[in-house]
Amino acid sequence: MAGKLLSIGECMVELMQAEGDLLRKSFAGDSFNTAYYARMFLPPDWSVDYFSAVGTDTVSEEMLDFIAKTGVGTDYIRRIENRSPGLYMIHLKDGERSFSYWRSQSAAKLLADDAGHLRSAVEASDVIIFSGITLAILAPSSVETLLSELRRAKAVGKLVVFDPNIRPRLWDDKTYMRTTISAGARASSMVMPSFDDETTHFGDTDIAATIGRYRELGVENIIVKDGAKGVTLRFGEGPDAFIASVPVDTIIDTTSAGDSFNGAFLARYVQDGNGKAAAAFAARIAAAVIGHHGALVPVENLNS
């Protein structure tokens, strides 16, 4: 069955350490990474589009060309004068990453400012995914514009997917952060949190507490990612299901582990609705991704 997936958020210029003192430039960002992996594993009769905003500068043109070459649609990406993409640098130590960001003039901060454009994109889509980073970069009024459209989409039966992906450095106020993350969950029919984020920022003592809190927010389907410990699913009124992680001999770069899981999961789930099979497939893909450098790993490397 054909369909349309829409990912909403910010794609950035990525600088990664290369040999010597050189840096390698690419483009990535949690919501785009998810779109990339969803496109990789969805059948051809599904379209994947990216909803964001970029500038009119040379780097923005390069970003649009890059996105299009991955097979992800760019028709919903707005162009904004006097703005440019944000930039981040990855720092790696023993496979774990940290980041430095430069995004004060990021055009993506204005992605929800055109409410009519946003509504058209959401109404044209069957599956919509967004993240806590998407919410964190927006002004409060734009957050409400976005969540209002997503609540409408959920109400008419679209699959609205939210990865809280909590990055505290992006939020000026932690109370507002928790309130907004909870509002994002209420607008969603599926939530894909990482347990370490939930225990750190919401005080959840175990995965059952995370699942219970999101169920109280009205989320029907919950997939809790717990790194090497595996994934726990609660779908509807059914029992919890546990999917073990895939062992990895050598971790090269954990960048995009969760994003690749999200994209691969959705690519399989929308085809047959089997959450356990989708999670098992996504766990295999995420394990392959962290064995390579960078956020966007070519498909041939994942099959090797």
Rank of each mutant, 00 (worst) to 15 (best):
I251A: 14
L217N: 11
V299N: 09
S84R: 13
V127P: 03
S120P: 00
A112C: 11
F66Q: 14
V122D: 07
E300D: 11
E149V: 05
G86R: 13
L64C: 04
E14F: 02
N274M: 05
L22T: 13
K93F: 01
V246S: 05
V246H: 05
F99D: 09
I181V: 12
G184L: 04
I290N: 13
K229V: 10
A187P: 00
A38L: 08
F235M: 15
E216A: 15
V246C: 05
M63Y: 04
D206K: 00
F130N: 12
T254H: 00
D226C: 09
I222G: 10
S125F: 07
C11N: 03
H292W: 04
F162K: 11
L15K: 01
V122P: 05
M63T: 09
K174C: 06
A267G: 06
V231S: 10
F202M: 08
A2C: 10
L42C: 13
T200P: 09
V48W: 03
L111C: 08
I90N: 06
L233I: 09
A278W: 02
G230N: 06
V143E: 05
F130V: 12
F242W: 14
A53C: 06
T254Q: 08
G203T: 07
A68G: 07
G294C: 09
I129M: 15
A287D: 06
L111R: 07
F265Q: 06
S26T: 12
A153N: 07
F51P: 08
D240C: 13
S26C: 10
A112H: 04
M16L: 12
F281A: 09
I222S: 10
W46C: 08
T58R: 15
A121K: 07
R152L: 12
R234S: 15
F27K: 05
F162A: 10
G238D: 02
D126V: 09
T180D: 03
K158F: 00
A112M: 06
S245D: 06
E237D: 14
R151S: 09
M89K: 12
M89Y: 12
N274C: 05
A139V: 02
V48L: 07
D249I: 04
S84H: 04
G273T: 10
E61P: 08
N82W: 02
P85H: 00
E123P: 00
A108R: 07
A283V: 03
S125K: 09
S26E: 09
A115P: 01
E149Q: 13
D49T: 11
E220S: 13
L22S: 13
L5F: 13
K225D: 02
D75I: 14
L118T: 02
E96M: 04
I90G: 05
D45H: 15
A279D: 07
A139W: 03
A278G: 08
D94Q: 08
I285D: 08
L296W: 03
D21A: 15
V127T: 05
N221V: 02
S104Y: 07
T58L: 14
R24E: 14
S141M: 11
L15F: 13
T232P: 00
L296H: 06
L150S: 08
F195C: 10
S60W: 01
D197C: 06
K174W: 01
